[in-house]
């Protein structure tokens, strides 16, 4: 599907040229996220790390997986599942972040050590 309307590059050099640039960008982003991980950014550290990861993923999706081409069906398919990921996260966190104290995990800690044997038999 991807690449049907596109004039296929004919030479090996032409194929390498475009993709090496993407690869260089990906490695640069890798370096950036590694360096930034050691900078104390507080809670923004996670935002930055995930933002860079999203940028890398977008590069791969658009340029290696050919989603840059205007194919609405493929774009819809590729990004539809993200909507459902958002559903899962939003509603789960709607519970986790607002739960009353006695039902929060950890409130029974440490009633007993982690080495307590569970009683169930482990047969397959």
């Amino acid at each position: 599907m991807s690449g049907l309307g596109e004039a296929a590059p004919t030479g090996a050099a032409a194929i390498w040229r475009g993709r090496l640039a993407v690869w260089a960008a990906l490695l640069a982003l890798l370096g950036a996220t590694l360096a930034l991980a050691y900078v104390p950014l507080g809670r923004f550290g996670l935002v930055v790390a995930l933002g860079i990861a999203a940028a890398k993923a977008l590069l791969v999706v658009l340029l290696f997986m050919h989603l840059r081409k205007p194919d609405p069906l493929l774009r819809l398919t590729a990004f539809a599942s993200l909507v459902f990921v958002a559903f899962l996260l939003t509603l789960t966190f709607a519970d986790v972040l607002t739960r009353a104290a006695p039902t929060q995990p950890g409130t029974v800690l440490p009633r007993s050590g982690p080495d307590l044997p569970a009683t169930g038999q482990r047969a397959f």
Partner: peptide, 26 residues
């Protein structure tokens, strides 16, 4: 968790059994 004892929903080690229910019912 059952086969290898790695704690994911184990309340004794901070796990949340209700989270299992969220994921299961999703």
């Amino acid at each position: 968790e059952r086969a290898f004892g790695i704690p994911i929903f184990d309340p004794l080690r901070g796990g949340d059994p209700i989270l299992f229910q969220h994921l299961f019912w999703f």
